[in-house]
Structure formats: structure tokens, C-alpha cells
Write a protein that binds this DNA or RNA. Structure first.
Lengths: 320, 320
DNA sequence: TCAAAAGTGTTATCCTTACACCCATGT
DNA sequence: ACATGGGTGTAAGGATAACACTTTTGA
């Protein structure tokens, strides 16, 4: 007996979109004005029985709120845990089915207050392209202090591997784990807001702007997923125009991963996978020598077993 | 403005569990009697407002229906698309949040009708450990015919890469894609049942037993996820007893992937990752020379960047 | 002519794959 | 003694990471 009777009332189901684009080497996320406080929110709306598929509902909402038409979309995660917050919230629970969407065109937003925002504004510690991010040392101090609070809890090792300290390698894919650790340590305002408490000074001092509700956590989930995915699936091309140069492609990969990549190795891999083809045209606006304009071979996706672009981080001085 | 008003009524939210264990080199899934027809179903139940977390609700339901207490649990996917079925179903929609759970102990089921079932019973074509599975040739004929129906649709290449034909490699992780192709081709009974039509002969003839509703699809999703995950996270150990031999570990990996693995390479990798430690004891019931009993080093999980067990499939005659 | 960016050739190293072989126990 | 499964050494091949260097444009 599958107990599939209708579930209790009071469950609202929201569809939430993390729409990502890249402009000027900066990954951007589509946001709308949040209803709670001044924080920006992700476009979202309740699931309607009229939508046959969840994706269809999502597309409808995003278009209504931002005027943006979605292209590539994949499911991210379903968030449904109730924060141990004010008890009045116990009656109504909101379930969010979050989706990751990628788009090659930034700028075409129309809804009231809809805008693109750099994702590293929310996660400054995730961008290592120009060396150690500003404020990283302060952040390390804070999490180290948190670990020292409970000496034998395993926090020390966890901090070490999550943030790449003491010789541990920096793993760019752990963006979500890093945010969750900061949340657990009470170092982001959301941790206090969710409990209905006042935000202490140290939590507010850390860099990185918050978002409405749990939307910064959802964005972190998207970042981790995307950083992992570009290594084995050709999703980078969903963020680029029809034709692009290899440098553009590399800078997009770097923007997402927050790392510098090795030029020759990056190119060798792209070439060897046969992911792109020369259009014969040249881009002349690059400042130096004109670059060949390439095109993504869409037909290759079904042919190859696991095409994609791997890491190739170059080790640089000051890199964990 | 985040349009977070309560969603429309008529949306039921179910929590569904794919509980996996391995016994006698056979992966098993926990099932309960399905309400529709004679097909087995996955344990599931409506989300209750009383459960603070989704996982808690899931654990409650599985325990109630099967007497089984869950250990390792992770979210799998949220299924919510309405099948283009009988129109009367249009009013009420069911959302299923599916979870993957792993357990080392098979056999401790108590609920009425709850039972363990071999997953290759549902997917005979996924088990390549003893060479080409029975019925694989017939299946290839059927999908090839489907591809030939629409010559320039790209079906041909899709079939080739999905099923590893014409020199394409077999990718064990594509279990879900294979099921979805069979569904699309109308080669599994569910495809017809979902449309409210009679099941034609050719769809019923293919090997592999169906499950209730879309549960076979959910199981396929779990298989694909698990086959991918064992390559980079130490989840195998969630399926084994406290102590085990290296051969046991390997046979478990083989059972899940449906492939034979290379002994020395498998061992080298496990050793080099430092995932296990010798208990000093020996297993004497193995038939030949007694094997060392090993133990999983749980502390290593947080230390290492990406421990796990990779593929190492040995190429054998008759392997695609 | 110089800065800036595109584009290439080559090597050391590690990881993966695969071969063949030896060891310890029960019957 | 021999069948059965446990356990190991080592070499070939390929992928990766890193080196430094040349080419083509605009200012």
C-alpha cells in the first residue's frame, strides 16, 4: 500500500530559478526585489495546477517577473526544511523546487526591479582569479575561532578541508559546503534571521551580501553544481553567444570556477574533444592579435560519452 | 516581488524512498505492494506538516511501512510532471520528492508485504557482469527498429551512444537514459499505461518487470546516481557490514555497476586512497585462502578531497 | 616599435591499464 | 596434490601539467 492520499493542507510549493549568465568575466544571477527587507530575491512563484510540467511553470514565472525567456534548464534541489524559527510559521510550510538555468544573453530584463547581479558579490571568498580574495584572512580567522570553540568536534579538520587551509587543496566545487559552514558558525546574517534573533556584529562584518530567505543557500547550491558540471558536460556553451573565441570560452570557465586555468592545456582539451569548430571568421576587437571565431558543435553532445572541460588550475603563489 | 502566496489546492506532496542494499552480489531494492495492479511500489507517503525536515518525514514513512530504519539518505530528484493521461487526473497533481537510501542490512523487513527485490529484475539489460545479458539482442533489435522509423531524427546516434552499439563504449551510468529511451520508444508497458492505452505485445515481451506508477523510472534515476557516485564518494561502505574483505568490497562495486572490475587496480586505488584499514582479523569462510578483514576509516571522509572508487572496467570478449 | 593578446611545440610526470605470477588454506 | 580464492610486482601506454616560445594585430 502506497499511502498516496492527499497530503495535509498548508503546503505551498514554489518554483525558484537561479538564472546564470556571464558578462565581462563576471558570473551574474538574475534577481528581483525581495519582499522581506531590502535583500534581493531569486525569481520564484507558486506551482500552478495549470502547468503540465514543473519546468513549464518555472519558465512562465521567470518570464512574468523579469521578461527573460529561459533556455537551458535543469533541476537543482528541493528545499523544504522548516527553519526552527518563529512558531507561527509552523502552520504553513513552503517547499521550493529550485532550478538552475543558463543564458547567453545578459541585459534583456524588463520586469519592475529585475536585474542582473554579480554572484561574487554574495560570495567574495569564492573568487581566486586575482589571488587571495579581499577579506579571506578575516574569514579564516573567524572560522578558525569557531573551530577552536569545540576542540574535539572534528570542526578543525572540516574547516581545513572546506577552506583549503594548512596545505589542503582549495576545491572550488565546495562552495555550498563553505556557505553551510559559515551558516552553522553563525557568520552570515541569515543564520540569525532564521532564528528570529538579532544579528551580532561579527556576522554582519563578513563580506558578501545576503539574499532574501534561503536564496543565498540556493545560489551556493547552483554554483557548486555548475562548477562540477562544466568539468564533464558541455554546459559552458549555454553561456556564450553563437560564435566566440577560445579565450572567451576560457575566461567564462575561469569566471565560473573562480580559478585561473592553464591556456595551452585548456585549448588542447577543447580541441581534442572536438567540441568546437572554426567558423573561418576572426574577432578583431580583442585588443591584440585577432582571434579565430569558433562555434559549438551541438551535434557532438549526443555522440561523445562525456565531453566537457576539466579543471587545469594553475598553481600560483599564495594559492592554498 | 517574490510571489510566494500559497499555491493552489490539489497539490499532494509525496516522499518516496529508493532503499538499496546488496546481498549475494545482487543489488536489492525495498518494495511494498503497490495499490495499482500487482506491481510492486517504492515505500512512500505524504509529507506531513509535523515533520520539520523532509528527511525526517521520509524516515517515518519508510519505518512505518517496512519496519526498516534508514541510515544514509540523500535527495534524488523531484518528480512532478503530469502524465498526459486520463483528464480526470488533471485536477489533482502529485509531486514526489524521491530519496536514495543505502543500508548494510538486508532482511530486517517487517511491514505487511514489504520485501527486498533484485534491481536487475527490473533492468536485466543493466547487468554485464557475466557477459551480454539475456534478451539484450532482442532489445537492440527493438530500439534499432524504433530508430529506423524516423531516419533523420538523430535517434540512430542516440541509440548508438545510449546502448553502446557500433563501437561506442557502454556507459553504465546511463541507466536512466536507457530507460527513458525505452519509454519513449514505447517498449516498456508504463509508456502505454500512462497514456491509458492497451499495452501492445512488443512492449510486454521485453524482459524486465515493471513497477507501480513511475517507480521504475525513479529506480533508474537512483541506479544512475549511485553508479556515478561510487566513483568519487565513499558510499560503497554504507552498503557493507562494519568489517569486510577487499573482495567483498569489489563485488559490491561490481554488483552496483554491473561490470567486472580489475582486481589489482581496484585494490591499488582503495589502498592508495587510504579508505580502509586492516582489523588484524581474518575471514575464514571464503573458500580459499583466508582474507584480511578490513574496516572503513570514517574519519577519512572529511579529510580527503574526493575519496571514492573509480571504474576500471576490464574489457571482455563480447563487451560493447 | 612596443604592448597585448593569440596561438604552438615539447617534455617530465603521474595515473591508468593490463600482464603474469606467488601465497595460504580446506578437501 | 590440487582447487580456490587472496594477494602482489612491474612494465607499457596515455593523459596531464608545466615549461618557454612565436605570431599577429592596434596604437
Amino acid at each position: 500500500m502506497t499511502a498516496s492520499s492527499a497530503s495535509e493542507p498548508g503546503i505551498a510549493v514554489d518554483l525558484t530559478a537561479v538564472v546564470i549568465g556571464v558578462e565581462n568575466d563576471a558570473p551574474q544571477v538574475l534577481v528581483v526585489p525581495g519582499s522581506t527587507g531590502g535583500c534581493a530575491a531569486l525569481p520564484a512563484g507558486p506551482l500552478s495546477t495549470g502547468d503540465r510540467t514543473l519546468q513549464a511553470g518555472l519558465r512562465r514565472w521567470v518570464e512574468a517577473q523579469t521578461g527573460h525567456r529561459l533556455g537551458y534548464v535543469e533541476q537543482l534541489y528541493t528545499f523544504g526544511d522548516r527553519a526552527p524559527r518563529a512558531p507561527e510559521a509552523a502552520a504553513a510550510r513552503t517547499l521550493s523546487i529550485a532550478y538552475l538555468a543558463l543564458t547567453p544573453d545578459i541585459g534583456a530584463v524588463s520586469g519592475q526591479g529585475a536585474a542582473w547581479r554579480r554572484w561574487y558579490g554574495c560570495f567574495p571568498w569564492e573568487d581566486w582569479r586575482d589571488g587571495t580574495p579581499v577579506g579571506f584572512d578575516a574569514l579564516v580567522d573567524a572560522v578558525t575561532a569557531w573551530a577552536a570553540d569545540a576542540p574535539d568536534s572534528g570542526r578543525r579538520e572540516r574547516v581545513r578541508w572546506t577552506f583549503g587551509l594548512d596545505g589542503a587543496p582549495w576545491d572550488e566545487e565546495r562552495a555550498l559546503e563553505r556557505y553551510e559552514l559559515l551558516y552553522e558558525a553563525g557568520l552570515v546574517p541569515e543564520a540569525w534571521i532564521d532564528r528570529g534573533r538579532a544579528v551580532p556584529d561579527d556576522a554582519a562584518r563578513l563580506p558578501g551580501t545576503s539574499m532574501a530567505l534561503d536564496h543565498r543557500r540556493i545560489l551556493a547550491t547552483a554554483i557548486s553544481r555548475l562548477r562540477g558540471k562544466i568539468k564533464y558536460r558541455p554546459v559552458l556553451f549555454e553561456l556564450l553567444p553563437e560564435t566566440f573565441t577560445l579565450s572567451q570560452l576560457q575566461r567564462t570557465a575561469e569566471a565560473l570556477s573562480g580559478l585561473r586555468l592553464h591556456k595551452q592545456n585548456f585549448r588542447r582539451r577543447v580541441e581534442s574533444l572536438g567540441l568546437v569548430e572554426d567558423t573561418g571568421q576572426k574577432a578583431t576587437d580583442t585588443g591584440g592579435r585577432p582571434a579565430r571565431l569558433m562555434r559549438f558543435r551541438r551535434d557532438v553532445v549526443l555522440e561523445r560519452p562525456a565531453p566537457g572541460v576539466r579543471g587545469h588550475a594553475t598553481r600560483r603563489a599564495g594559492f592554498p
